[in-house]
Simulated assay, not measured.
Amino acid sequence: MPKRALVVIDMINTYEHEDADVLVPSVREALPAMRGLLGRAREQGLDVIYVNDNFGRWRSHHDELLDSALRGPHADLVEPVRPDGRSLFVVKARHSIFYQTPLEYLLAQQGVDRIVLCGQVTEQCVLYSALDAHIRHIAVTVASDAVAHIHPGLARAAFRMMERNMNAEVLPSDRVDLGEGVPGEGHGGR
């Protein structure tokens, strides 16, 4: 049976960047679906992997990033989806979750052959990550209501590209098949 992992993209965020004023309302709209997906994944024992920008601080680690985001003006967008003690964490520097990160190796070690993507930004990091997964022969599902966008039209085009060009499943979060995990395991607890 295919093994899945939930990948949460760039949700540990201070929202102190260009386009944040446009992005924040979309994140607020996507947050309930993200929370629901995270809850289901954790309950089913799936690995939950946070892949996050490092804010340009090469000395940053996940606790520092999380603390900074929780002290920021939009902590209410971070707190509901924060990593738990079993979550895995990968720091990235560019748009793709795979670009010069250990994620591909981590997925192989965990036996994951399908990733479920949620987070931000649909027409940027989510799209590029789906493409990079596709070229690595890793199947992709995108929870369409659990990803936030900056430009609605580009987000719709990104969904179409992911479905058509990358064979991604693009589904509402309540229709995403998370497969079967082992309750109480996963999240890096192996």
Rank of each mutant, 00 (worst) to 15 (best):
M1I: 01
K3M: 12
A5E: 08
A5P: 04
V7Q: 06
D10T: 07
N13R: 12
T14S: 15
Y15I: 00
Y15A: 02
Y15K: 04
E16M: 08
E16Y: 00
E18F: 13
D19Q: 10
D21F: 09
V22K: 13
V22L: 13
L23Y: 01
V24E: 02
S26W: 00
V27S: 07
R28Y: 01
E29I: 11
E29C: 05
A30G: 09
P32M: 03
A33E: 05
M34I: 01
R35D: 04
L38P: 02
G39P: 01
E43C: 05
G45S: 10
L46G: 02
L46M: 07
N54R: 12
G56W: 04
R57I: 13
W58L: 12
W58T: 13
W58R: 15
R59E: 15
H61L: 11
H61T: 09
H61D: 15
H62M: 12
H62V: 08
A69Y: 01
L70H: 08
G72M: 01
G72N: 10
H74N: 09
V78S: 14
V78E: 05
P80Y: 14
D84Y: 14
L88V: 13
L88E: 07
K92G: 06
K92F: 09
R94H: 13
R94D: 07
R94I: 09
S96H: 06
S96W: 12
I97H: 06
Y99R: 07
Y99G: 00
Y99V: 03
Y99A: 08
Q100M: 10
T101V: 06
T101L: 04
P102D: 07
L106D: 09
L106W: 13
L107M: 08
A108Y: 11
Q110W: 12
G111F: 11
G111H: 06
D113A: 07
I115K: 08
L117E: 03
L117R: 01
Q120Y: 02
Q120E: 15
Q120I: 05
T122G: 02
E123W: 07
V126I: 13
Y128F: 15
L131D: 09
D132G: 07
A133H: 06
A133M: 09
H134W: 15
T141D: 14
T141V: 08
T141F: 03
A143Q: 11
S144M: 08
A146V: 06
V147G: 06
A148K: 04
G153V: 11
G153Y: 10
L154C: 10
L154P: 03
R160N: 08
M161I: 10
M162H: 05
M162E: 05
M162F: 08
E163V: 02
E163D: 09
R164K: 11
M166L: 14
N167S: 14
V170H: 03
L171W: 04
S173M: 02
S173E: 09
D174C: 04
R175E: 13
V176K: 03
D177G: 04
D177N: 11
L178I: 04
G179F: 00
E180W: 09
E180I: 03
G184I: 09
G186P: 00
G188E: 06
G189D: 14
